[in-house]
Simulated scan of single mutants.
Amino acid sequence: MLTRRGMLKTFGGLFAAGFASSTYAVGIEPLLRLRTTTYQISPPGWPEGQKLRIVALADIHACEPWMNARRIGDICRYANDLGGDIVVLLGDYVSSMRAVWSQVPPDIWAAELSALRAPLGVHAVLGNHDWWDDLDAQAADGGDTLSHRVLQAAGIAVYSNRAARIQTATGAFWLAGLEDQIALRPGRSWNRFAYVGLDDLPGTLAQVTDDAPILLLAHEPDIFPQVPARVSLTLSGHTHGGQVRLFGYSPMVPSAYGNRFAYGHVIEDGRHLCVSGGLGCSIAPVRFGSPPEIMVVELG
């Protein structure tokens, strides 16, 4: 028989567990944890013996206190120690969260990112929040955002529907980067209800002029069903792994495909996608079962 004392103990235990989980999800996992997740992949179209180690950072969402300048700098120094041949940044450098003390100015977070180093350079695409928070870029329906400008000023190559051929000691590859797929908010006289993407996958891939393999950077993974087999690997962020992830499932994922592209290494029809869990938080400063991570991909 369940007594009154037993009921109180049960409810007390549930309350304590809920409080502990909430404390961990808000105060520990997003602020204090950082993991490195490594994938070793030999995708179709990638030449045998052509080695490439990619270090990928996504979804920084710079803000106080969750992702302040000091923490960004610490993450960059740690990323440099991972020995990547190339560093790629997968978008969303600014934060739109309301639950913050203050925003980190773009020139400050860009200065911290300028410390990143790799033999083949540091290369970036933008994310939706970099567009959504730039009112001038929204009003202009495109062009360069403030994030474009501060990254370039920091010496980081920014890809906006652009492909570049990169030569390495073991072979060449093409690095292609898409502009954001939901860059422009709805509300205009000509577009009241839908987000508008500025990405151009066919135009970007048309810049490839030889048979060297292609790596594609795309902030949102939702482009993946349209990516042709000619692309050896697509790298994305945006989803944060759902920020709350239990037993490989996230109840809320900012993707039209739900958990299909929420996180990790995805293979469909022989095509490969790697989705980073990202570093910062969006909407709410909560992470549970999806700690901030740096993604490392070893090809060849």
Results as ranks from 00 to 15, higher is better:
residue 299 L to S: 11
residue 154 A to F: 11
residue 196 V to Q: 11
residue 66 W to A: 08
residue 80 N to I: 13
residue 114 S to F: 00
residue 55 V to L: 12
residue 123 H to A: 12
residue 165 R to K: 15
residue 101 W to K: 14
residue 66 W to L: 11
residue 17 A to C: 15
residue 224 F to C: 03
residue 257 Y to E: 09
residue 285 P to M: 05
residue 239 T to F: 01
residue 143 G to W: 05
residue 295 M to R: 13
residue 250 S to K: 00
residue 253 V to P: 07
residue 60 I to D: 05
residue 295 M to Y: 05
residue 74 D to M: 08
residue 36 T to M: 06
residue 87 V to A: 09
residue 159 Y to C: 12
residue 103 Q to Y: 09
residue 223 I to C: 03
residue 166 I to N: 11
residue 36 T to W: 02
residue 175 L to Y: 08
residue 152 Q to N: 12
residue 9 K to S: 13
residue 151 L to A: 10
residue 145 T to Y: 03
residue 118 A to S: 14
residue 36 T to Y: 00
residue 252 M to G: 08
residue 207 Q to W: 05
residue 294 I to Q: 05
residue 216 L to C: 09
residue 108 I to G: 06
residue 219 H to V: 04
residue 186 P to H: 05
residue 176 A to T: 01
residue 2 L to F: 14
residue 262 A to L: 01
residue 117 R to K: 14
residue 190 W to I: 03
residue 222 D to F: 06
residue 213 P to W: 00
residue 221 P to Y: 03
residue 220 E to P: 02
residue 235 L to W: 02
residue 251 P to V: 09
residue 210 D to I: 06
residue 288 F to N: 09
residue 264 G to S: 10
residue 66 W to F: 15
residue 201 L to Y: 00
residue 137 A to R: 05
residue 168 T to V: 10
residue 80 N to K: 13
residue 1 M to K: 10
residue 165 R to G: 14
residue 73 G to D: 04
residue 223 I to W: 03
residue 260 R to E: 14
residue 25 A to S: 15
residue 3 T to Y: 07
residue 207 Q to D: 00
residue 276 S to G: 12
residue 6 G to R: 15
residue 35 R to Y: 10
residue 226 Q to F: 09
residue 226 Q to W: 05
residue 143 G to P: 07
residue 73 G to T: 10
residue 129 H to F: 04
residue 94 V to W: 01
residue 234 T to I: 04
residue 72 I to Y: 12
residue 272 H to G: 12
residue 170 T to E: 13
residue 123 H to K: 14
residue 98 R to Q: 07
residue 30 P to E: 11
residue 284 A to S: 11
residue 107 D to S: 11
residue 28 I to V: 15
residue 233 L to Q: 13
residue 260 R to S: 04
residue 101 W to M: 02
residue 96 S to N: 09
residue 106 P to T: 06
residue 206 A to E: 08
residue 231 V to E: 01
residue 205 L to E: 06
residue 87 V to P: 06
residue 69 A to H: 14
residue 13 G to P: 11
residue 282 S to T: 12
residue 275 V to E: 02
residue 199 D to M: 00
residue 238 H to D: 02
residue 101 W to C: 02
residue 74 D to W: 04
residue 46 W to L: 10
residue 288 F to K: 06
residue 155 G to E: 02
residue 214 I to E: 04
residue 95 S to K: 08
residue 194 A to E: 11
residue 78 Y to P: 00
residue 158 V to M: 12
residue 158 V to L: 12
residue 76 C to E: 06
residue 76 C to R: 09
residue 100 V to K: 13
residue 82 L to G: 04
residue 71 R to N: 07
residue 61 H to R: 11
residue 206 A to W: 01
residue 229 A to S: 13
residue 146 L to P: 10
residue 109 W to C: 03
residue 198 L to Q: 10
residue 167 Q to E: 14
residue 193 F to R: 15
residue 250 S to I: 00
residue 92 D to M: 03
residue 199 D to N: 12
residue 99 A to L: 08
residue 14 L to N: 09
residue 206 A to H: 03
residue 113 L to H: 09
residue 148 H to L: 05
residue 247 F to H: 10
residue 84 G to F: 03
residue 14 L to F: 15
residue 48 E to S: 15
